[in-house]
Design a protein around this nucleic acid. Sequence first.
DNA 1: CGACACGCTGGACAACCTGCTCAGTCGAGA
DNA 2: TCTCGACTGAGCAGGTTGTCCAGCGTGTCG
Lengths: 159, 159
Amino acid sequence: MDDLDRTLLALFTDEPRIGVLGASRRLGVARGTVQARLDRLEATGVITGWGPELSPEALGYPVTAFLTLEISQDAGHTPVADALAGIPEVLEVHTITGTGDLWCRVVSRSNADLQRVIDQVVGLPGIRRSATVMALATQVPYRVLPLVRAGVSAGLARP
Amino acid sequence: MDDLDRTLLALFTDEPRIGVLGASRRLGVARGTVQARLDRLEATGVITGWGPELSPEALGYPVTAFLTLEISQDAGHTPVADALAGIPEVLEVHTITGTGDLWCRVVSRSNADLQRVIDQVVGLPGIRRSATVMALATQVPYRVLPLVRAGVSAGLARP
DNA sequence: CGACACGCTGGACAACCTGCTCAGTCGAGA
DNA sequence: TCTCGACTGAGCAGGTTGTCCAGCGTGTCG
């Protein structure tokens, strides 16, 4: 993870269509080098994919909410998480510290529709309580790139 | 957003490297059709990008936490959010309903390092209080595709 | 000091893909 | 019935990818 890697990541984030050859020309390095770097970044897990990024909003799900779930003592995290994974509107689930047990991000077609999604979630076996927080606006959209730039003089990706 | 669109999105999510021609062969449609569909999906905002997906973990930031921030009455949301955007470890910021004013996702190099990040956040002008919840494990990684599949008989992307 | 491993360079090649165009076909709607 | 939009199948030039190779400079290690 040196400067070239960082520049490559920034470049491909800005212009995903640039391609290996284009990047090599832009950065003034050999094509093989770019190819090797990208291969290594994928091999080390820094780049996890090249798939299309989808907008839930454009798909008709403009409402985002965060649910903090409390689960029954006798229910493990995993079966509940598996059940949550079966709900399409559940985009993300983490176990957390603090008052709740699970945190999840859900989306819905409207405020009214959010009720349906929440009902679906709390209706799952093993879920005891849920607290809902709605996201009103996105001030900073999800991003990772600043982290890459921040690592200029910091540690490597290899543990 | 018909069946072909949905299949295309699923296909390119599973195999991003397949390319337009490969997808057309796989699905048994003309290449021009695939190209037109992808163009339309990008134009309507369903596909927001093709950039590389980066793993904070592989970049050396394995710790994820969610901060709920309370800001001073006299401070607007925006200047605070702008300041937050200046911190690389802040990956995402939303305004929310409920007890807090802002919600953000942060990452850090270690549990100890999380303290540094939190200090940096709460040190920003306009931030009064913060509550931290740490993410322990990712039960369901962020995904949007199920939403696409769920929309089989539901509304369109066009408003 | 010398040998070695490693990464980068510049080049080459065939195979492939993309962007673009065009005429023809088909179904839905006016 | 006519028209429009979308899909098909085809073709073309140009660029790109995947994959080699030899050469070279640097840093490490014996």
